[in-house]
């Protein structure tokens, strides 16, 4: 049963994807608007049937009249609801950026055609913006928070646009399948070195002298570290190879290095680095970012920090292709993976 449902669901998805090609901007028309009665609409239909039977059984012309009137209104409402959406165009103006786990604001532009578009709602996964009214010929920008799961590209497979206006008995809906993706920075996790305090005062001072620096950061040893930098005393005490990394003084370049966390999972490293970037940027420090395959020269300032965060966000990730019919980085994907592990 479940398998049939799944297969039908996949088929339906493919059909929809054919009808709505991936694009940041969609003009809705008969071709891509779907319309069905809502639950209330179905009950309304049943009610009309009961009314008709009442009319027949009591041979009551006025009940016939009322039934026909409401039935015609229902069909008229279908027209209205459809028109509410048709002619409207929805564009993804600005995919958002943010930290993994948060809701990332995507900016959409809703431009209505020659009819008013009233009570429009946009939704993606479990996030929803409702009550968008756009008078005929005007546009309105709407920010839709897209729940993100992890770092990387964030591209919901479909963003649903829906309206039930005027009576709520019918819903017309469609989707936009954005081509552009937002970026999700790694979750910020305080890097462990920064947590540790400098305890070996005299050695520190010596090390500082050798490195020509005055403040130190501790980090695990990695290949290529100079022997004088290793804090041998600490090694003797705890067996950990710890290297004193010297905090940049004002103006002195400092590298945030992917390789600085030996034995740590890649994602965790990125999280540490992201935190460090935030931290350094907040302190106004100069720093560079060294990722395998990407090097960002030391600099300071907000723009630089963002550049670094973006680099961290997409490191090792492939840009979503247009023909890729799946969601990237949205929270629903995470839930599904956790829930049943069905292939996405």
């Amino acid at each position: 049963m479940g398998m049939i449902k799944q297969s039908v669901g996949r088929r339906f998805s493919r059909w929809i994807n054919r009808r709505i090609p991936r694009a940041d901007s969609v003009l809705f028309s008969q071709k891509n608007i779907f319309i069905l009665p809502t639950g209330a609409g179905v009950v309304f239909g049943i009610l009309l049937l009961i009314m008709l039977i009442t009319g027949i059984n009591y041979q009551n012309s006025l009940i016939y009249l009322l039934t026909f009137m409401l039935g015609a209104l229902f069909v008229g409402a279908m027209h209205q609801t459809h028109r509410n959406l048709s002619g409207l165009s929805l564009s993804l103006v600005q995919p958002g950026e943010g930290v993994a786990g948060e809701d990332i604001p995507f900016r959409f532009r809703v431009s209505s055609g020659k009819d008013d578009s009233l009570a429009i709602s946009l939704s993606v996964e479990d996030s929803r913006v409702a009550g968008i009214h756009v008078p005929a010929g005007e546009s309105k920008d709407v920010t839709l928070p897209v729940p993100s799961a992890w770092r990387g590209y964030l591209r919901p497979d479909r963003v649903r646009i829906e309206t039930r206006f005027p009576f709520g008995l019918l819903k017309a809906w469609s989707w936009v399948r954005p081509s552009s993706a937002g970026l999700v920075f790694p979750r910020l996790l305080a890097a462990p070195e920064a947590l540790s305090t400098l305890e070996d005062g005299p050695e520190n001072a010596a090390a500082a002298k050798t490195a020509g620096q005055d403040e130190a950061d501790l980090r695990p040893w990695r290949e290529g570290d100079l022997s004088p930098r290793v804090m041998w005393k600490r090694f003797a005490r705890s067996g950990q190879m710890v290297v004193a990394d010297w905090e940049a003084k004002q103006g002195s370049p400092h590298w945030l290095d992917f390789a600085a966390f030996p034995g740590v999972d890649n994602e965790l490293r990125l999280s540490y680095l992201a935190w460090l970037v935030q931290d350094r940027a907040a302190k106004g420090a100069r720093f560079g970012l060294n990722l395998p395959g990407e090097l960002i020269e030391p600099d300071s300032g907000k723009v630089h920090a963002e550049r670094c965060l973006r680099a961290l966000a997409i490191w090792g990730e492939e840009k979503p292709r247009d023909d890729d019919a799946r969601a990237f980085g949205t929270r629903r994907k995470l839930d599904r993976a956790a829930g049943g592990g069905s292939a996405v």
Binding site: Y64, A72, L73
Partner: peptide, 28 residues
């Protein structure tokens, strides 16, 4: 407006919808 637009259909339906005999007897 909606009622005005649907009025012709309502009238046509009212005139032409077959007036069937009661489906079951329902004394009032």
């Amino acid at each position: 407006l909606l009622m005005l637009k649907t009025l012709p259909v309502v009238i046509l339906l009212f005139v032409f919808f077959p007036r069937m005999a009661p489906l079951w007897s329902v004394p009032m």
